[in-house]
Structures are given as C-alpha cells and as structure tokens.
Simulated scan of single mutants.
Amino acid sequence: MSGTRVEIHPLGALMRRFAVDWLDRADPAVPREIMAPGYTIRIGGYVLENRDAYVETTSEQLARFPGLTITVHDAIYSDDGRAALRFTEHGASARGGAAAWRGIGLFSSHGGVLVDNDCEEDYLGRRRQLLAGEPDPVDPPMVAPWTEPPTPADPEAEKLVRTWVDGGGPTGEEPGIVHDDACADAPSTMLLDVDGCTTDAVFAAGRRVAFHAVQRGRYRGGLPDVEAAPGTSAELRIVGLVEVGADGAINGHVVRDRLGLRRALTDGTGAGA
C-alpha cells in the first residue's frame, strides 16, 4: 500500500510542544525551550509582557485544575510563522467541580520559538459550569492538528474578513458563526449593539482566517447577574477562526471575553476592562 508521506512541519511541532508538553503535562521547563524571553500574551484585556510572568500566571491556573487537558479542534499555519488553534481546556477544579471551556489563540513565532499570542477563552462559561456542577461536553478533536501544512495567505479572503471585522464583526446572529455559548438547544446571545470595532491581529492560511479584535458599542443585555442598563457603553474582546467560501460567505467560530464584559459592567467601568 502506498501513500503520501506525512511530516510534521517545525511550526506544527512547536505548537504540539505548547499544547501537549506545556499545558497537558504542566512541565514548567518547557516554556524556556519554546518561548522567547519576551513572550507576550494578550488575553481578557490583560497583557503579560514576558515569559516568566506568563508562566507564573498560567502555572497558577494549572494548579487550580490538576490534570487539565487541552483538546484541539482546529489548527491553521501560515507560511510566515503564524499559527491559530481553536481548542477546549477541560478538567476538574481543585476547589470542586469540573468544566470545559472554549478558546482560540493566535500565535506568532520567530527563530523557532513563540513570541506572542492573542487569545480569548470563555471564562464565563467555565464559571457557569463550576457553579452549576455540570461540565459541558467537549467537541470532537481535530484528527491531525500537528501535521497540517503551512499555507500561503489568500489576500482576498484576508481582506474580506478584515473588512467584516473592521465594520463591526460578528454580532451573534450570523447563521454561519458558532459562538462560545452556543449549544444544540440554546442559540448564542447577542450582547452588544456594535458601533465600531478595532482589529488587533489578523492573518490567513489559504482562505482560512484568524483574527482578534475589540468591539465597541452599547450593551443589549443577556449576561447573568448584571444590573447595567441596556444602552450602557461597553466593549467586548473577540477572537475568531473562520473560512471564506467561494461565494464570500464567512463561516467559523468566535470566542468572546464575556467574563471581561460582565466584570466591566458590574464594576461600573463600562467600556473599561
């Protein structure tokens, strides 16, 4: 029996070490081997500007969820050293209960190591599950996330997604977009009347495009235990991994920093993080 030889590209191997050796195994020696000293992560409105700060913060979360596992559902790699993973982190909390929460991260590498990451995770979904005592199911994994070959960007697809996001981006009503809180028996909740959006990062691998952005607008309602009046100015960080069809339709997944929005509205800071 013959077939095409499958190889792991160095970028796929790097992301495998990030997901398996670092997060799954919680090996604190790994970040020094796969990340630059200035490794920076932007998540939930926070910025950790060096590797040691990131490792310290992440190690606290790994200790809170002993045995935490990351399941990768989708992965893309560009031909200029960038990668995006759509994943679920799941595990039992040391404080009791278990949860499975979705996330998407956009990574950049240089010289064989990771240099930064724009990421959002559905921490509000995690909070809901821990309080309810009922974890969500984990979506099926991608069969071969580490052998996906790097692909040159399709400029048209990247431009279409950038234009869409700059024009406001996903609202929660698009039929082709699956949001963090959507499930079989409950559609996603539209949280903002969006007035504008700022794109922080975007890149394409073929006609598949990853982006991170901040939506600004007026709160519509829909978050639990929030007394802020509809119409309150607010901002919402979003991250997506989508594909542009031949007809220009955009389909894919979006994760929103709903916990950050809830925190801002509850603290009375509105548009602040």
Rank of each mutant, 00 (worst) to 15 (best):
V194N: 05
E56R: 13
D193Y: 06
L23K: 08
P135R: 00
D257W: 11
R208M: 07
R32V: 09
D21M: 05
T147D: 10
D118V: 04
P141A: 02
A210Y: 09
R32K: 08
G67M: 08
P175N: 08
R5K: 12
G67A: 06
A144S: 13
R64E: 15
G103Y: 05
P175I: 05
G97W: 01
D139Y: 00
P140T: 09
S109Y: 06
D257N: 07
T198W: 13
V209L: 01
D24I: 05
G67Y: 03
A213K: 02
C119R: 06
S188Q: 04
L124V: 04
L259N: 02
G44T: 04
A186T: 14
F18W: 13
P10E: 05
V143H: 10
G103M: 05
T198K: 09
P224C: 01
R102M: 05
D52C: 08
D21V: 08
L131R: 13
L191N: 09
F18H: 00
K159Q: 15
A271M: 03
D200I: 04
E120R: 00
E7N: 11
V226H: 10
R5D: 13
V194P: 11
I177F: 09
P155K: 10
R237P: 07
G222E: 03
A63G: 07
H179V: 11
R262P: 06
R220P: 01
H9N: 08
P145K: 12
A99V: 09
V113A: 01
V20L: 10
R25E: 12
Q61R: 14
A204W: 02
R258D: 03
V55M: 10
L241W: 13
E120T: 12
K159C: 10
L259W: 02
P170K: 07
V161I: 12
D154W: 00
I8S: 01
R220G: 05
A63E: 15
G268S: 10
C197S: 12
V30L: 09
D52Y: 02
L14A: 02
A99M: 08
A229P: 12
G172T: 08
R256F: 03
G38A: 11
A63C: 05
R216W: 06
V178L: 14
P135E: 05
V138M: 06
R16T: 07
Q129W: 08
V72I: 15
C183E: 15
I76Y: 10
F18Q: 10
L11I: 07
D136T: 02
I177D: 09
G222H: 00
D80G: 04
R237L: 09
A273H: 14
G217K: 06
R51S: 13
A132M: 04
D267Q: 14
G67T: 11
E243F: 11
R126S: 07
D52F: 04
R95S: 14
A99D: 03
L130Q: 00
D79E: 06
G133P: 14
I8E: 14
G3T: 01
E89C: 06
P224R: 07
E33C: 07
R5N: 01
L14G: 00
N117D: 15
D257C: 05
E174P: 02
P140L: 00
A186I: 05
L160F: 03
E243R: 03
G245V: 11
M142F: 02
G172Y: 06
R42C: 14
V202M: 11
P137F: 14
P141C: 00
L62D: 08
H212V: 12
A246G: 08
R82N: 12
G252V: 07
E227C: 14
